[in-house]
Amino acid sequence: MLSVFLVGIAILRAREPIPLAVVVLLAYPLLKRKAFTPGVLLILAVSLLGGLDYFVRLLAVAELGLLFAETTREGDVMGALTRMKLPSDVAISVGMALNGFHNLRRLFGEVSEAQASRGMGGGFTAVKSTVVPVIVRALLLGEELGEAMEARAYSGRLRLPYKDRFRLGEAVLVIGSVLLLAISLM
């Protein structure tokens, strides 16, 4: 039921599905050579459906990730993981991943605004000219962040300042989230 719900969300959010014309165009050379015997057609159909299935699952996982990142504070997750006696590095990795999402979104917004203010319209060219600078800036940001962490004495062993009191509710939520992720990938 949950998978169906997530898939539904994913389909609703997939605003720009691959146009049918593109599929026909790709299949045209095969059609011309009369390669579409019933067996080949069946394999193709199964493969396409399988691919679509994985695509939708990935979208669902991405949606789940977005939902998690939008509604969860890095500090809360780091605190919960630390109190569950997981290594601090795990907590900090998860916290940084969440923060990375916010940073990427901020970078994407900044670059898009800069492109738009210089008259860039929509379409594939706009996406291409936005994605490349975002990737470059994200890589630079990662490097600088690494330097900043080192400059604050980070050497791979960290003690996070969260009181070491185990909280059952937190643990249930964390384990539940991991299970949810696993289910939506299965």
């Binding site: 504070r73 890095e74 500090g75 780091m78 916290g95 940084m96 969440l98 600088e144 962040l145």
Partner: peptide, 11 residues
Amino acid sequence: ERMFFTGRVFD
């Protein structure tokens, strides 16, 4: 802003 990676000033 490039050195911040947690979600809370305290952290």
